[in-house]
Design a protein around this nucleic acid. Structure first.
Length: 578
RNA sequence: CGGGGCGUGGCGCAGCCCGGUAUAGCGCGCUUGGUUUGGGACCAAGAGGUCGUGGGUUCAAAUCCCACCGCCCCGACCA
């Protein structure tokens, strides 16, 4: 491509609305432009990157025997009603207004189960892996960080259909391997975490994470043994609350003005580990009391999973008063006027000598014995892991990092096949639901995550595998040197002939402008042709990432480019961290 | 959804609080001419704006008021 004819609108200034580095650079390098909140157009350069990433995905999916489909984004609402997700997805699902009964698909489990029901009859037709790369629509309440969280985005989604759980395990493992290869080939340093299945349902799931400050997920990770988990499910080996040998009689006492656990600690000298913090949540319309130790932080995702609730939210101040008779700060498990389920964090199991609210403003109870004084319906791990807590596997200190979720694999089970009637006959002639898995990759997120990890103050640093072009050919002073023009033109042709993708800066621009644009776009190699070099019979090769420069004879330039590209693709940092 | 901020040539901003400068400025970019030429050149002359939209107040609105639209940020854990 000749730069003089290319549509590559680079920006010198930082776009005001871009927060994340990847977002800024994608705008500045002319990869994308915003059309609306969370909706982006890919410009030619950005689309070339998308296509390269999608090609890698296709190759690796095909390698595990997956078959590519193309499912419609427009879906009949009926199949979404059959699985109940028209409710559980709520506002995230786009509904078509002027044609009742159509929605825009945010994912395709329903469609896959629909077609499986149409045609899969026998165990002999299983297993199957179906995939597609296609736009997804999600009415995100808050799109963010450019292409990292959009309302329309491109997803590689695949679905495995198996006759039994052992088959699902195999399909799942095939995907895990394919995903490792995909992200590795895309140059990402990633790690894999155990994750919550959330609204998808199912038994197990893992996320592929790229550490980045722009990430919206938080993960706990052990650097010693490799334990890693999304905080939504992460555990730690914090010490439990010790049960003291004696429980003194329950006693109500006045605590005027106490609003927080810290108030209890500072004003009444209660040790933090003897405080039981009570929260009220509304789970599918029913109030639930949650007890946590001291200043432990509730993890709503864990609580939701434990309750099996479709909807979970904190109670409003009005509901607090209605259900407990008190306001925040004076709530506790003793003497609740409204009967409700009480979930206590595992850390409080069978604890005694606790202090908690008395469900009357300005009063607390002390000497609470959870065995003696109240009925705990369930002990469960519902707290949020904090940095520095001991790893549940090996006891080393956990780190907690922000990360971008680039892929997620789920063992779904039979939720969708049962809802849509996707059944088959097994070897004995019994009808059984197909066992499904579902597996997603956010294509744009791969690109944004890559840029987050591979940039410097001048711009992006691509690797050959996903760079929009391999080589940036800079003809310096092309407008006043016939030699520069002629040799640059020849290099341009011979590089393409050698299978090298070249962006040829043939513009009549100053050297500085060309250098800066080249660094911003970040193609892995820059080939610099100048009158000065040609006098000595050489051209210059610059590796974008390292800044290494090579002066090579004009006649050897094409071979040297090919050699350097091979080396750049194989540098060790393209291997995953774990 | 709650809170905050912003909307002024292509981009980044000033002007608004406290209405009135007869042609709404600045930097970058763009056009033309000249000079320059290996890290975002210089000089000169130009082009380009319904001041988000609608309504209102006023002799007079980019500026004040109301509504709407759009975009960005924080939040939607700590009782």
């Amino acid at each position: 491509m000749r730069y003089s004819r290319a549509f590559i609108p680079t920006l010198r200034q930082l776009p005001a609305d871009a927060q994340a580095v990847s977002h800024q650079l994608m705008l500045r390098a002319g990869l994308i432009r915003q059309l609306a909140a969370g909706v982006y157009s890919f410009l030619p350069l950005g689309w070339r990157v998308m296509q390269k990433v999608m090609r890698i995905i296709r190759e690796e999916m095909d390698r595990i025997g997956a078959q590519e489909f193309h499912f419609p984004a427009l879906n009949p609402a009926e199949i979404w009603q059959q699985t109940g997700r028209i409710q559980t997805m709520g506002d995230v699902l786009f509904h078509i207004k002027n044609r009742e009964g159509l929605v825009l698909a945010p994912t395709h489990e329903e469609v896959v189960a629909f077609h499986a029901r149409q045609h899969i009859r026998s165990y002999r037709e299983l297993p199957q892996i179906w995939y597609q790369i296609q736009p997804k629509f999600r009415n995100e309440p808050r799109p963010r960080f450019g292409v990292l969280r959009g309302r329309q985005f491109t997803m590689k989604d695949s679905y495995s259909l198996d006759a039994d759980w052992e088959g699902l395990d195999r399909s799942y493992e095939l995907h895990a391997q394919a995903y490792r290869r995909i992200f590795t080939r895309c140059g990402l340093r990633f790690f894999v975490v155990g994750a919550s299945s959330g609204a998808m349902g199912g038994s197990a799931s893992q996320e592929f994470m790229v550490e980045s400050p722009a990430g919206e997920d938080t993960c706990a990770r052990c650097s010693r043994c490799g334990y890693a988990a999304n905080v939504e499910i992460a555990r730690s080996a914090v010490e439990p609350t010790a049960r003291l040998p004696e429980s003194a009689p329950l006693e109500r006492f006045a605590t005027p003005g106490v609003r927080t656990i810290d108030d209890l600690i500072t004003q009444h000298g209660i040790p933090e580990e003897r405080c039981a913090k009570a929260l009220v949540y509304i789970a599918d319309g029913e109030p639930v009391l949650v007890l946590l130790r001291g200043n432990d932080e509730l993890n709503e995702a864990k609580l939701q999973a434990v309750l099996g609730a479709a909807a979970l939210r904190p109670a409003t101040p009005e509901e607090l008063r209605q259900y407990t008779g008190a306001s925040a700060g004076s709530i506790g498990p003793i003497g609740l006027p409204t009967p409700m389920r009480i979930i206590a964090d595992e850390r409080l199991r069978d604890a005694n000598e606790l202090v908690s609210g008395a469900n009357a403003d300005g009063y607390h109870y002390r000497h609470i014995d959870l065995r003696r004084d109240c009925r705990i319906d369930l002990y469960a791990d519902v707290r949020t892991v904090q940095p520095g807590e001991p790893c549940p596997e090996c006891g080393a200190a956990l780190e907690v990092v922000r990360a971008i979720e680039v892929g997620h694999i789920f063992k779904l089970g039979t939720k969708y096949s049962e809802a849509l009637g996707a059944r088959f006959l097994d070897e004995r002639g019994h009808e059984r639901p197909i066992v499904m898995g579902s597996y997603g990759i956010g294509v744009e997120r791969i690109i944004a995550a890559f840029i987050e990890q591979n940039h410097d103050e001048h711009g992006i640093c691509w690797i050959p595998a996903i760079a929009p072009y391999h080589v940036h050919l800079l003809a310096l002073g092309i407008e006043r040197s016939d030699a520069v023009r002629q040799h640059s033109d020849e290099l341009y042709s011979s590089l393409w002939a050698a299978g090298v993708e070249v962006l040829y800066d043939d513009r009549e621009e100053s050297a500085g402008v060309k250098f800066n644009d080249a660094d911003l776009l970040g193609l892995p190699l820059q080939l610099i042709v100048s009158a000065r070099g040609l006098e000595a019979g050489t051209v210059e090769l610059k590796e974008r990432r390292s800044g290494r420069r090579h002066h090579v004879a004009l006649a050897e330039a094409v071979d040297k480019v090919a050699e350097l590209l091979r080396a750049l693709q194989e540098e060790p940092w393209t291997q995953p961290a774990h």
